[in-house]
Design a binder for these strands. Structure first.
Lengths: 340, 340
DNA sequence: CTGAAAGCGCTTACAG
DNA sequence: CTGAAAGCGCTTACAG
């Protein structure tokens, strides 16, 4: 292993100067800097992150702890998220590692263990639950962390989209098209984003002077088979909805399948909208007709999450601190006016 | 942050003794040890892994670098592997972290970066390719690592099953039942395990005095849709096979589907065997009829992988060094005698 | 522009 | 059984 000492000996310089030269500090003779750089390359020097970490208190590593998932779709979803985060962090010079816990493992303790042992500069938390204990623990320990999404019960740095608007805009779009019986497939009530979206849906009804009681809200795991099952039930019901809003494109995929099984054409017999995270694995380009709805690429969120966490870890590099990301709307071809 | 110094000050002891007491060394007065333990708990002491790492050269962290995958099934497969490894490593007191690379990212470089920066004690490599460059790089750097599977072109520590036997036993079983036209669905030719299995298949034919030319070997990604497609093609062919061997249960799932679509009953019209890794996500208890074939739980492999890597990292804890794991055979109900 | 020195928190010969 | 000291490899005031 080549150390600063080796370089300093090789060059007859002090370790101090070598360190400064490689660190790119201004107060080093340009000549010297060049010589040091050359020697470091020649000897194959690699800075020891552990030693640097002990001195500076920073390891350059950020972590995320997740629980193992139960379904292929959820796994694929998780891995795409991890890939997106990894890419952003490596772009800004931080290393992102994942710790996958057992389903029955205590993730709060894992956060504590990882942080208190040192060596982790910060954390990412995704899919926060109501009064999320991970957020409470990280806050208590004074760890740097960014949450994707939001827990309204605690104050914390977060990056999110305006989920109220997600619910409001899609519902408004359908109401304008004349739909009244709208079903909304979304996650359970213990997620803030879902509650916000439902609140947006209700607001849209109210804005149109309508009773939101006409809408049906269904809470479910947000994967295709569940979407298919729920849509199937809805489409078999007496007062079947004329439009379905899917919380993500996986659910929408299930809705499309259910519609096909019921012999219903989209958008003629059934309008469908979905919120689209723009995930590659569940690309919407295979939707026929093309799906409409709100649009906010998760990849944007990762840019923001990574930059924000970096700013918390390295305050000297003042970066952006986006919090609420912009929301788009795609018309698509999956919704049509209704005159029931 | 509470350090050894804080405890030593609190107790009026030297840092040396505090360190030894907490480290469980024998040469410390039992009384003292107790007092130190109590003080550490009271003050909330957590050893600083970074400092320890600088001194001992060990971080207690092992890593695996994988490329992001493209399909939900492959993602689920990967995550189950990661969960299994995580569980084993945490059982023996090591932390297992995952780095998920972009599909286009240079994983060799990632291994180098992670290792040369220090802070990673060892690596796990899975799914080795022919002349795998990751293995070459880790060997060159002198890193501790264990490969699950084997690269015949390089010497390295590995944990594996006897894949020759996997191919030989399943083929032998079918040949004894009178099958002659056997199709074998397996991975591409660039994997050692697949070549070994094919070699085993040929040996079984030879042992029965038969020409292995009657067998059909199909290389493909080992997931259900591919198995279904390949089986469908085979079952439509003129000289359709009377038996299909699937390299894993995902492929077998696809074969079952294809058989159903072709109106073929298993095992009456078609015999099917599969190698079963005993993964929870692709449990075989939903196979009707129950699938037969070779059986070797991956969870066993992880026990062995973790113990072996620990032995390489901490030679003082001499542990087991299983290399080739035992192989079982399940009769199941998916294969039947043939008299074509 | 350069170097000697201190120190991050820990472990471990060494001497008593 | 106990403690003073050295040192892992780095960074960074401080003094020149």
């Amino acid at each position: 292993m080549v150390t600063l000492k080796d370089i300093s000996r090789d060059l007859g310089l002090s370790v101090t100067q070598v360190s400064r030269a490689l660190g790119g500090h201004a107060d080093v003779n340009a000549q010297t800097r060049k010589r040091v750089r050359a020697a470091a390359d020649r000897l194959g020097y690699r800075p020891n992150a552990v030693a640097r970490g002990l001195k500076t208190g920073r390891s350059g590593i950020v972590a995320m702890v997740v629980s193992g998932t139960r379904t292929p779709e959820a796994s694929a979803h998780l891995l795409e998220i991890v890939m997106g985060l990894s890419a952003e962090f490596s772009r800004i010079g931080l290393r992102f590692v994942l710790h996958v816990a057992q389903p029955d493992e205590d993730t709060v303790r894992l956060h504590e263990d990882l942080f208190l042992a040192g060596g982790i500069d910060g954390f990412i938390v995704i899919s926060p639950q109501k009064s999320d204990p991970r957020i409470a623990a990280l806050t208590r320990m004074g760890a740097a962390f960014v949450v994707h999404g939001r827990d309204p019960d605690q104050a914390h740095v977060h990056v999110d989209i305006d989920n109220f608007e997600v619910g409001r805009r899609m519902t408004d779009h359908l109401l304008r098209l004349g739909h009244r019986r709208i079903a909304f497939l979304t996650a359970g009530d213990n997620t803030f984003f879902s509650r916000e979206r439902v609140r947006g849906l209700k607001r849209a009804y109210a804005d149109h002077g309508l009773d939101a009681g006409m809408a049906r809200v269904v809470g479910l795991p947000m994967i295709a088979p569940e979407g298919q099952r729920a849509a199937s039930t809805l489409l078999s019901s007496k007062q079947r909805p004329t439009a379905i809003i899917a919380g993500n494109t996986l659910l929408a995929r299930g809705v499309y399948r259910a519609a096909a099984m019921h012999g219903l054409q989209i958008p003629c017999d059934l309008s469908v909208l979905a919120h689209d995270d723009d995930l590659e694995l569940f690309a919407t380009d295979t939707f026929d007709p093309p799906i409409g709805g709100t649009f906010a690429p998760l990849s944007q969120a990762w840019v923001s999450v990574a930059d924000t966490l970096q700013t918390m870890i390295e305050p000297e590099k003042e970066g952006l601190k986006h919090r609420i990301l912009p929301l788009g709307f795609q018309i698509g071809g999956s919704a049509k006016s209704n005159s029931d």
